[in-house]
Amino acid sequence: MRRYTFHLICALLLLGLAVQIFLASPEARAQTEQKIGQTPIPANILVAIRESKPGGDPNPRGQILYVQSMPFKTYIRNVLPNEWLPNWEAESLKAGAMAVKMFAWYHVLNPVTIDNQRFAVDNTTNFQIYREGTSMPRTDAALDETMQLAFVKKDDTIFELNYRAGYPNSPNFQYRNAQKMAQHGSQYLAHRQNKNMLQILQVYYEGRKLVKIP
């Protein structure tokens, strides 16, 4: 019996070490969700620039050419006009501005490593479409009006405010179950049902709230 006690304790030791390595590693802890007020709005963001298709569009399957650090505000200003149509309703644009910002913020807190390159987002539909020099006064105004606001979980946790294209001329309610906003749906709700930014966001993301960034 005593012979086996030694082996048993050794096995327990190994098990304990395995728990430490795989469950309590810094990588695993890094995924911990952060709350608004505990982390400031990012100053910069790391954007991976992928090679373009022959027609000029950034290729989601293209190689990463380089990773660029840029001001967070510059990034979101050059995303919104490429994701939402810039002449859509003001409240649809503001809902889009909130989605683009919160999506980027979440990914700054949860960066990825692909092909040995560490970054928050890339410039394609893998994340959000970013193109340098495409910001427009109207979309910039939508971002400016929402810059001090955040849309978070009830306990203030920052979450990935995801979205998809959806179908034109429809509220796209099927996206509610997936907790994703339909871009076309946001325009439909603003244009046809006169809904404001908060009401649009609440249609697609249930159990969330709008707060002022402290």
Partner: peptide, 10 residues
């Protein structure tokens, strides 16, 4: 962390 109050959007 104390949860922040909801912002009254208008």
């Amino acid at each position: 962390h104390r949860p922040l109050p909801e912002y009254k959007y208008e």
